[in-house]
Design a protein around this nucleic acid. Structure first.
Ligand SMILES: [Mn+2]
Ligand SMILES: [Mn+2]
Ligand SMILES: [Mn+2]
Ligand SMILES: [Mn+2]
Lengths: 219, 219
DNA sequence: AATAATATTTAAGCATACTTAAATTTTAAT
DNA sequence: ATTAAAATTTAAGTATGCTTAAATATTATT
């Protein structure tokens, strides 16, 4: 399958996960930076290949086969991120940028080799789950966003959901990293801002960031 | 530059190295598995982009710019081979197969990271030289093929020039590896077969193999 | 030097993945 | 329920990178 097709089914899969964002052609088009007309064309072509179900004017739905392909691409993406992060010590932003291309030129064989080398990790360096070779994700996810946490509790960072360089730079500078511990000292004005303590520093985060940082409460 | 273009200039560069194989469209076409007509089309298009000089019915010649691009692709290819060979312990055949695709989706930044990780190696696991970031190859190559060696002398393997799985499998099984030492015990019938000793085994190689195994004499 | 064989180029056509502009349908607002 | 706004689809067209078949030029053979 071509790069265009792989990016397309991946975009449908990701948009489909969060029902706020839907999978109508226009949204996929926006995500991929192509015209709406191109998205409609591609939708028809993918329906022909049995990768999606397409009904005029309706949201796009992946078939089982389509979802499998999407998960394969996502698996390769996240394995690359984990591999480059570990071996070459690249930043969260850099690994994502490279993985976006490498994901399409990686044999299943190589993906498995990388996975094995890393000890078959279940999560990538952003905390995103890595599908296994059969396209299954073992997501027992009971994490919440930082914006929903309670004052006076401690949490472990479980996921940094973004692909923005500025955000990742900020995280790196302030020790906001997958697996690190933070303490929520105050929630301001109906959770529009969150004050946390980390590494004996106090930092104040606004909603833009607290909504993409996922955490698990420490019992 | 597209994958098609990168493979094309790389093929011209490689065919141009050994004047037995020339760089006329037909030979490039054969190497890439495309029609002669497609090769002519591409030649015109590359001339337009100033990557080659094209004159009807003549051999194709890379411009300085074209050669730079070819060397960049070759650099990435060989860095990938070295990186995968080291980290994932893949075979010579496997690393080549993967590198053939990865070479086109690797930023200069990532290539430099890989190079640095490996200690800026000058040769890949086949013994092929790796161009540096400026596209320079430091090839002070005084190696000869095994077919030209003399009885009773010892040599170090410096290069395995092939992309054939059977050959590499044979090499792996018999300790024929970049950097390993061999002793030439006999040359048969005008060097059509060569008998060598390696790891206390005696093996007899015919010309198909002795012409793609390069060695340096041990003084 | 003429002829046959081989290689290259031209021509016409196709699939993919895009574009913009116009037509149509859906959705939202009055 | 009409109407206006927004999204989707259709239509027409483009660039890339291929194909096969025919025309043309080069190279090899006699
Ligand atoms: Mn990513
Ligand atoms: Mn991608
Ligand atoms: Mn190789
Ligand atoms: Mn290649």
């Amino acid at each position: 399958m071509s790069v265009a097709i792989e990016n397309f089914v991946k975009a449908i899969y990701k948009n489909g996960k969060h029902d706020d964002n839907d999978t109508k052609p226009g949204n996929i088009a926006k995500k991929l930076g192509i015209s709406n007309a191109a998205a409609t064309d591609m939708a028809k072509s993918l329906a022909n290949k049995n990768l999606i179900n397409y009904e005029k004017y309706k949201a796009l739905e992946l078939t089982e086969e389509g979802e499998k392909l999407a998960l394969k691409v996502i698996r390769k993406h996240r394995l690359w991120e984990a591999f480059l992060y570990k071996t070459l010590e690249m930043s969260l932003h850099e690994i994502h940028r490279e993985a976006e291309f490498l994901e399409h030129e990686t044999s299943d064989f190589l993906a498995d080799k990388i996975s094995e080398y890393l000890g078959n990790p279940k999560f990538d360096p952003h905390g995103d789950p890595i599908p296994n070779a059969d396209g299954e994700i073992t997501t027992k996810d009971n994490s919440t966003t930082l914006s929903k946490t309670k004052e006076g509790k401690s949490y472990i960072i479980s996921r940094l959901m973004s692909d923005d360089k500025e955000f990742f730079d900020f995280c790196a500078q302030n020790g906001l990293k997958y697996g690190n511990k933070i303490f929520v000292s105050k929630q301001f004005s109906k959770n529009k801002m969150t004050q946390i303590n980390i590494n004996s520093n106090t930092i104040l985060l606004n909603e833009d960031f607290t909504k993409i940082i996922y955490v698990n409460e420490i019992q």
